[in-house]
Design a protein around this nucleic acid. Structure first.
Lengths: 186, 186
DNA sequence: ACGTTAAACGGACCGATGGTCCGAATCGTA
DNA sequence: TACGATTCGGACCATCGGTCCGTTTAACGT
């Protein structure tokens, strides 16, 4: 990849990140806006990312990677010998925090049309992980659907709708949900 | 309301219903399409329903009402002396069926942008009902959030994503989820 | 250094869509 | 039937995602 291409790619990602982060409604961030903020022509933008969905996906995956690194780094000991329910609670909590910290971007991703929340590498990853933990905790019976249900409970527009709840209440709700689903609450 | 206005309103609702029902992607149904199919000018369409969201909401509420009537009618005896968990299972099952039968329309409603799935009379109604049943079944602790979570599990795009599952599997999954959340599985 | 070439640039341009406007047509009423 | 209020309808507008192509520029061989 040519040097200017790489430079522009970075500029676009950074500009788009700022725009989405400071937007209430992700739909209000137009491709023209992104191009202008990045100091780049529209042609460049679309050649690099294909379309709006591609840009949003790229940005989302960038942040997801960053989160994965962070949580891995702070995971420290990692104590693999751990209750799957606790592991699931921690995973869901991390996901919830991610959704809160990336409200607008997550909403942008989930509202792309065409079942996009599910046609997504990150979703597949999470669903696999949650399914495995549920299967471990309560058997594989309906683990597949239950995993979808858990993930649906932290969908960004729901989190957004509950934006005036204190974070702790949301977190407690999610934990309660996870423990209930895993077979034995408290 | 003038007679022609009422007639046109009906024509629009019926045409829009047909169009959404036969569409795979609700976004592919344009306001022009609706106006043309209803044999009405665009001005009429927008004056009556305000905007696209208004039309979709009107249509959705129409169907929701129809479903409410039907389920009430067939509810028959109504046996109020009933386990709240069973009642909740039945309610969620009805909602799931509604989402399946109105796939495109539900998706249209849920993908309006601006937290629209939640800014909706029907959602408030369902959430209240589910919250009450959960509170009755397992206490009012996190009932509010758990109700949101249950409703999220039957969101139309998830149902759509799982379209190739047999209906029975979906139904079983929802029932399993409800019973788990209500405190005691099986 | 310099010329060559393939790649990237950028913004004018396009088609579609949601939404507006206003002269024409129509309904209800006296 | 005549008249005023209401509604109709489609031409019109702004915006947005996406394309196109003449121009620029980075990379590399000589």
């Amino acid at each position: 990849m040519r040097a200017d291409a790489a430079r522009n790619r970075e500029a676009v990602l950074q500009a788009a990140g700022l725009l989405f982060d400071s937007a209430d409604d992700p739909a209000a961030v137009s491709m023209d806006d992104v191009a202008a903020a990045a100091g780049v022509g529209k042609g460049t933008l679309f050649r690099r990312f294909g379309d709006r969905a591609g840009l949003i996906r790229a940005l989302y995956e960038l942040r997801a990677e960053r989160m994965a690194e962070e949580s891995e780094a702070e995971g420290g000991g990692d104590g693999a010998a751990d209750d799957p329910v606790d592991a699931l609670v921690r995973a869901m909590d991390a996901l919830l925090r991610f959704k809160i910290e990336n409200r607008a971007l997550s909403r942008a991703l989930e509202s792309l049309g065409g079942g996009s929340p599910y046609t997504n590498a990150a979703y597949g990853h999470w669903h696999g992980r949650v399914t495995a933990l549920i299967a471990e905790a309560r058997g594989p019976e309906a683990a597949d659907f239950l995993a979808h249900a858990l993930l649906a409970a932290v969908r960004s527009d729901l989190v957004d709708h509950l934006a005036d709840w204190p974070d702790a209440r949301l977190k407690a709700g999610v934990e309660e949900l996870v423990r209930s689903v895993c077979g034995r609450g408290a």
